[in-house]
Design a protein around this nucleic acid. Structure first.
Lengths: 220, 220
DNA sequence: AAAAATTTTTAGATTTACCTAAAAATAAAA
DNA sequence: TTTTATTTTTAGGTAAATCTAAAAATTTTT
């Protein structure tokens, strides 16, 4: 059994490991709003518990057990987000912080029943896949909107940024999950992208385009 | 903002204050499965924060703020219990421990929406009243089954013991909330009570009878 | 009202998760 | 390949919540 803090470290390492093999101390510290020295302390503890593999100065990787633990927390986080949106009518930009607390509630029974109550959802309100109770989930084949070329089209199926500010912005522009879009133009000057969204032209900054995930359904 | 631990102390003091004016150190320690020395430490802290009034060797009482905080935690606990039973099909003897964790989730919005989602319930699965968002709730006029006389009848509307063992036992005997009962006999020897429950005779020990709460609807 | 028993508090330690400041290792630049 | 910069670790310390053992206050009993 891990403390909330340990769980948060494991989750952070898990997410960081999606883009690098060896997760670095500083990256963890930045993500967790703490100091590198504190991270080193905790990493040692997690290593002692067999949840991470750790070589001094080389960063960490999750062990099998550590990874499963992290995935379980991610599962809980995402299921709670679905609950908040589907049942309690929260908006997708309001759920993150509460789910961040709820994910630590320890009851296998609770989560299994919640999963059932929600109808075994496959994705959370941001399009992220929800692992099943064995930790399995489909590797999603998303492409970042920024990587599409003029003429390409697809469906918005996810976002890679969960901040309220970002999500509210998307909402305002009408860029919500499930919407069909097509790239009409990419501005050389600032890299902003002009997209066609149900007969309407919408311009989004490069920064925004980086965090919208598309399931591509047709090349130019 | 209080720590989980502080919240648990406040809640415990609140419950103990239902039967005594000044809550004693040892009583808190016993209830919280900790040592009196730890209780003294925490009481000082709560007193510094203005949540309890404390005179050395004289026990504590909750201040207005402390009481409101405690009531809010009780509200959350009971709403979560309703959620677990009504929505996730937990049994009444399975909810206590999970609710004990859920009650600490800090989000006013979450609780208001949960309350609404559940249809603003007035009582939890054990018959305990749920305070509204202003902390108000009806003082319940329960009488302990043990205090009834032969011939008295009433409805089971609550229990004053939430342990799984006790609740499972009641379940087995058919003594659940809403059931009509009448006292047919009280045994001199061991104080056990013979009751009439929908044309069936059921015998319960004095210990059990102490923890069943009846809303009396007729004297002998 | 003294003696005995109980309750409560104090004093001093421990553990967890942090921190700062300085040292050590690694990586990047000259 | 040195020098410089960056990253990471170590050393030593703090605050929260706990503990044990002993002292102090209160209550009960004789």
């Amino acid at each position: 059994m891990q403390s909330y803090t340990e769980e948060n470290y494991l989750k952070t390492i898990y997410h960081l490991a999606e883009s690098t093999t060896n997760v670095q101390t500083n990256a963890i510290a930045e993500q967790m709003q703490t100091k590198p020295a504190s991270v080193t302390d905790m990493i040692k503890k997690l290593a002692d518990k067999g949840l991470v593999d750790y070589i001094k100065y080389q960063g960490v990787t999750l062990t099998e057990i550590g990874k499963n633990t992290a995935i379980d927390i991610v599962r809980k986080h995402r299921l709670w987000e679905v609950f908040l949106v589907d049942k309690l009518n929260f908006k997708w930009d309001e759920v993150h912080d509460v789910a961040e607390e709820l994910e630590h509630i320890r009851s296998v029974e609770l989560i299994e029943r919640l999963d059932e109550f929600l109808g075994f959802p496959k994705a959370d309100p941001h399009g992220d896949p929800i692992p099943d109770k064995n930790g399995r989930f489909a590797k999603t084949q998303f492409i970042k909107l920024i990587e599409l070329k003029v003429g390409d089209s697809g469906t918005i199926t996810g976002v890679s940024q969960h901040s309220s500010a970002f999500l509210k912005h998307l909402e305002k522009l009408g860029l919500t999950l499930g919407k069909q879009i097509q790239i009409s133009d990419v501005t050389d000057f600032d890299g902003s992208v002009e997209i066609l969204l149900s007969d309407k032209q919408v311009n989004i900054s490069r920064e925004v385009a980086k965090h919208i995930l598309i399931s591509s359904n047709g090349k130019n």
